[in-house]
Design a protein around this nucleic acid. Structure first.
Length: 526
DNA sequence: AACGGGGTAAACAGCA
DNA sequence: ATGCTGTTTACCCCGT
């Protein structure tokens, strides 16, 4: 039975039991992990007579060892945000209605999480046949449900693989290996999944091929990395996935008595954050061992927060005072010698800010409201001098583990030191970096003939959006507002939008893949 | 019903 | 020659 609308008292009870179930579920999925300990700590805190101000420092400490800290909010900022939002939310704190609205409870059942004892039965019932999708109401354990297709899209899987690599760039083969190591399902899956991975890498703009120098020899193929400007979208997509711990934690925190969310003037809600939730933005160290370690060393991602806030501030100023940008239809993406000029440096900066703001907007809506992690053309950018939105700076460029068990342990002096501009990797080192997982090779057998006209790679071109209509600017300002609120930045009156804001709409993928881009390009060529 | 996202299969070129 | 990688197209399924 799904938790549904109920009187307030019953809601409270359901709320508590649901939290308990989620904690239990997560603990089972990641036994002994810092995440598990922290969750129980939180539950203890919660049960201890609703302390006036929950001191979550212990939880923070434990959870700070998990990744995605960059999405965490500084506790101080959260408190400010709470204060700001308090006026709007009083009546809604005790209600789960917004969760219903956001559809976040759709996978929570009062029947509880089944345990290992009946897991086999359930497995047969729901995922017994290889390749079946994982049943929606069963917590997914990649090591247990080896016959169930992981409930993550290929994009998310690739993202996780690359993010889990210290160098944040992987050859496709290592992506295969990571997937096999972390999701044993793929070890015995039909080999088409590799094709899907490659297909995704090529088609999805979120992934960027690192051109290798002629001098470098990393074997066949190129390294793949996450396009920093699309990273928020991938994070959003990852958070959306039903069984990512972060997803469950969001639900957990959302039902906490300290839950609060910011009401936008439009009535749209920002995703709720609590002081607990702030520290709970933590996915599994199991999936991100390297990130877990690295981020445990940094208390907060304040720099990136401030950076985003600053740029959004300037964005708001700019968009509220400037006429629409005019720009050309497109320019070659990164590593091109120079993009065509479309205006002053200020215009370029503005466009970047606009893009970043829109990329960030997706983080402010409930995951279930956003079904696109692709981006609009408005999220285009020039890659040349775009500030790095990822946490590269946090990283040692050490060696990725040679096996799943030592992914985060040793570093390789041969590999260390190559960065965004240095793609050279010693051949021997490269070979050594690879996991020893051999999979059957899939050979194409079909004889389909394609009558293809020569086309220039879509990845070579990016379309520049025209910021011509007021709606577009409005959306951007809304997004800036939303993120500023989320970051706990108080708006100055002078910056307050004059016009009534409408609800934030998730990014719409007008041109969501490279194929579409390619089509645009072909059209523009003709 | 239309549309878009995601997955899969396949063809093919290029490279090691 | 072979296998791997990368790109592209086509099709299907599913949810909205």
């Amino acid at each position: 039975m799904i938790v549904t609308m109920a009187p307030a008292r019953n809601l409270e009870e359901s709320d508590a039991s649901m939290r308990a179930r989620l904690v239990e579920s997560l603990s089972q999925s990641f036994p002994g992990s810092a995440l598990s300990k922290a969750l129980h700590g939180i539950m203890d805190d919660y049960d201890s007579a609703n302390a006036a101000v929950a001191d979550d420092s212990d939880c923070s400490d434990m959870l700070s060892s998990s990744c995605f800290a960059e999405l965490r909010l500084d506790k101080v900022k959260i408190e400010e945000l709470e204060a700001d939002a308090a006026e709007d939310e009083d009546d809604e704190l005790t209600s789960l209605a917004w969760l219903q609205d956001a559809d976040l409870l759709k996978n929570i059942h009062t029947e509880g999480i089944y345990d290992d004892a009946d897991e086999g039965q359930k497995e047969n019932e729901f995922g017994g046949h290889h390749g079946h999708a994982h049943p929606p109401h069963v917590p997914y354990n990649p090591q247990k449900h080896i016959n169930s297709k992981p409930p993550y899209s290929f994009s998310c899987l690739i993202f996780m693989a690359i993010e889990d690599c210290p160098t944040k760039r992987l050859p496709v083969k290592d992506i295969y290996n990571w997937m096999v190591a972390h999701f044993p399902y793929f070890a015995n899956a039909p080999t088409g999944w590799k094709n899907s991975v490659r297909h995704n890498l090529s088609l999805n703009k979120c992934f960027k091929k690192v051109d290798k120098d002629k001098g470098s020899s990393i074997g066949k193929g190129s390294l793949w990395m996450i396009d920093p400007d699309y990273r928020p979208n991938l994070l959003q997509a990852l958070r959306k996935t039903p069984y990512h711990p972060y997803h469950q934690l969001q639900m957990l925190s959302a039902t906490s008595p300290t839950t609060n969310f910011t009401m936008l003037p439009s009535g749209a809600r920002l995703f709720p954050w609590t002081s607990q939730a702030g520290s709970l933005n933590s996915p599994s160290p199991h999936l991100f061992p390297f990130l877990s370690k690295r981020l445990a060393q940094s208390k907060f991602e304040t720099e990136s927060d401030i950076d985003v806030a600053n740029t959004l501030m300037s964005l708001k100023r700019g968009l509220e005072s400037r006429p629409a940008l005019k720009c050309q239809n497109g320019w070659p993406r990164s590593r091109s010698p120079s993009p065509p000029e479309f205006g002053s440096e200020q215009d370029k900066h503005l466009l970047r800010e606009k893009h970043r703001a829109r990329a960030s907007i997706v983080c402010t809506v409930p995951p279930s409201d956003d079904h696109n992690y692709g981006v609009t053309e408005g999220q285009l950018q020039d890659m040349q001098d775009s500030p790095n939105s990822s946490i590269d700076g946090e990283y040692d460029f050490g060696r990725w583990g040679r096996s799943p068990s030592d992914l985060d342990e040793d570093t390789c002096s041969d590999c260390s030191g190559f960065d965004d501009d240095d793609e050279d990797i010693d051949e021997g080192c490269r070979d050594d970096r690879r996991l020893c997982v051999k999979l059957p090779h899939h050979s194409p057998v079909g004889k389909r003939k394609l009558n293809r006209s020569p086309v220039v790679s879509a990845k070579k071109m990016r379309m520049c959006v025209k910021v011509e209509d007021e709606d577009e600017k409005l959306k951007i300002v809304e997004g800036a507002d939303a993120l500023l609120n989320l970051a706990g930045i108080t708006r100055e009156p002078s910056l307050t939008s004059i016009v009534p804001l409408r609800s934030i709409s998730p990014i719409s993928p007008t041109s969501n893949d490279k194929t579409n881009n390619n089509n645009n390009e072909v059209k523009s060529e003709t």
